[in-house]
Write a protein that binds this DNA or RNA. Sequence first.
RNA 1: GAGGGUAUAGCUCAGUUGGUUAGAGCGCUUGCUUGACAUGCAAGAGGUCGGUGGUUCGAGUCCACUUAUCCUCACCA
Length: 873
Amino acid sequence: MAHELAKQYDPKQVEDRIYASWLKGNYFHAACDPEKKPYTIVIPPPNITGQLHMGHALDNTLQDILIRWRRMQGFDTLWLPGTDHASIATEAKIVAALKEEGISKEDLGREGFLKRAWEWRAQYGGRIVEQLKKLGSSCDWERERFTLDEGCSKAVREVFVNLYEKGLIYRGERIINWCTHCKTSISDAEVEYEEKDGAFWHMAYPFTDGSGAIIVATTRPETIPGDTGVAVHPDDERYKDLIGKTVRIPVIGREIPIVADTYAKMDKGTGAVKITPAHDPNDFEVGLRCNLPILNVMTDDGFMNEQAGKYAGMSLMECRKAIVADFEAAGALVKIEPTKHEVGTCYRCHTSVEPRVSKQWFVKMKPLAEPAIKAVRDGKTKFIPERFDKTYYNWMENIRDWCISRQLWWGHRIPAWYCDDCGKITVEREDPTHCAHCGSAHIHQDPDTLDTWFSSALWPFSTLGWPDKTPELAHYYPTNTLVTGYDIIFFWVARMIFSACEQMGEVPFDTVFIHGIVRDELGRKMSKSLGNGIDPLLVIDKYGADALRMTLATGNSPGNDMRYSEKKVEASRNFANKIWNAARFILMNLDGTEKAPYVPADLALEDKWILARFNALVKEVTDNLEKFELGIAIAKLYDFIWDIFCDWYIELAKIRLQKHDETTETAKAVLIYVLSETLKLLHPFMPFITEEIWQTLPHEGETIMLSPWPKFDEALCFDAEEATMNSIMEAIRAIRNRRAEMNVAPSKKAHVYVATEKKDVFSAAVVFMQRLASAEEVILGDSFDLDGAVSIVTADAKIYIPMDDLVDFEAERKRLQKEKEGAEKKLSGIQAKLSNPGFLAKAPAAVVEGQRAEEAKLIEKLRMIEESLAALG
RNA sequence: GAGGGUAUAGCUCAGUUGGUUAGAGCGCUUGCUUGACAUGCAAGAGGUCGGUGGUUCGAGUCCACUUAUCCUCACCA
């Protein structure tokens, strides 16, 4: 049968159909076969609010490459997919949607709001999953999980109770980061610092005994109503005598003491610092040490409260202006010093974060961090690239307790009940009906929910069934590779590691494969506000998923950012088309009776050469994948397919294909073999086109997805044939080069005389030269005496092309002279090395040998160039 | 303030444990309806690998210093 394939590859005709066939074949499903070695990846669960962006596309392409490769290698592979409930982001979206309808979440009430939230999740939660499928992701969709599903919730509950019972979770009044827009506490990791213009306002606080004033500086005048002290360093000679005195806050009028605390640095500002324990983390600590009262002067939505007296009801900025104006009027404003300031903002909404004292739940971090640090130090989990372990250590070693309670409704509700009678807390695995301390039935549950990252932290084991002892957990845990961006190491990776160490006594994965972020063409971060984001789905629609994947894989080197540009996708699309046409050509030459791919017995020179090159490729690509050098692996595949296979081998094979004799069958067999084996190597990177072509070629098995990964084969090493082919290719390139230089049309065939000692090599090359070097006839001999011929010198031969009318003797002499100089320069470099005793003594023998061989070649080449120059007269 | 990344062709980037003449894609120049592909074929121009010094027989690769640029972390009034 003659195959009729379109001249250009059209991914739209292929991708959805192929993906459906994979699903139908159930190929993504992990069987949980205890006999087979597992390889597991858990997906970084995208937010249900999310839409696929380039970051997801990169992250999931890398995961799919790894999982497809390991699957072909015969591992029992599990790529476990799922989504994250993303409490703060999702709740914000729903609140915004409600606002459109003119209602607040309070109007709906907790129950009603959660009903809406689940409806929202039902409607949009599957969107990103469908988008992942467009990319070709071979996740085991039967095992898809959700951080708020029953099993994950059970895991969350277990961990919370567990940590509470160990005393590693506590409730306390501490200073936390408060987002006035989201109206919830957030953790330290969720604060992003942005540089903003600010100032130091120097204010004079008069002593109550009328003996003058002390000057303090502040960047936040609006906190002045909350001041409960002024601190100076105990050793500060300037202020020693003032300790214990009181000052009166200007305008406000309240009396506050001057206290001694080492937090006040003598060399900073005036050496005296106002203390606002309710609204600054450091001041909070000072307040504790010096017994200062805590005075909260703000509301939870960013206004001054009744404690702020006349400023109550103002926004923070209004209050700041008013206070500065009032102080100035009262003569208490000493000076204003403009400055830049790092201001904490909420990572979700970028509203300024207000530090404030609040009763929240915390995880005690020190005891959890230690084993997690040790695990990485011991190499149980490795970061790729390695340098990110520094980032990890740095964070883990300086970690503070983790605020895990959120004043939100969408999430895992904190499993703590407060007794209305005895006031004690009951924390249990099952919802209690009575106080565990006094037995009272008057208990009420904490209204808050847990930080989203609390449940994400359990993802590698909660998704495998923990706390139940499931076969999946036994087989697939610990997982193998976690693929994620460096921007999420703190939020997620570190927390997974310490959670797993604590709960499982084992690290969650052996390798963390870190990638960078995808930037726009100008190197800027893709962002909504800049409007420079590229929608991967549009790219897939235009160029195909394979082209997008190829682009993302090609540019990738671990840990480094990459720039997206449509030009790169075009190049990838062209590559897909190239393979398509190579396959089309091969198929055109088949009649449908061909057997499944095999290596025929009567191999020709060029067959041995391509098989040897392919064999080397197998080894290299596999090694690169083992080392997570995905970008290098795909680059090698690209070069092999385009330059080696298409531009050389197929062209050479055409000679035999057109002969229609017994050699034709060998050529066909090798073409089929090399193409289909190469498709396997390429499949993890470009799954769709490789499947489509593989299905059309003679093959065994249902799908390329499950075909065995090629192995390096000693029987396919043909060193001598490789060397021979290299000589021939060099000669062909040299001839083409000379013809191009002289502007000889390819249609003008020439006689080619090859003077060489290696006649066996070049006799094989005769037909190649005819086909690829526009040779009409190739004459071999020991030497020729041809006047008016162009001569070409290669390492193994001297080639003459008589072209009397075309030869410009002067130009020819110049060219030869230039070539001679080049060769001489190179030779002298090599000879310098070879006469260096240090080099001879210390360099490996193979390197020295290589240099000697090169020297001999150059000497011979120079001899022939001299000869040609002499012949020119 | 601390830590880290990057710097290689006009542009975007590879370059694996140090080892022949530093690679690719795009762009550029020249030629080609070579019966798979113009999303193609062939040939070519273009780089003192940011700078200085060092280690080494040998450095784009390792070390020190330095410049530029980007990022992360940090409670600095």
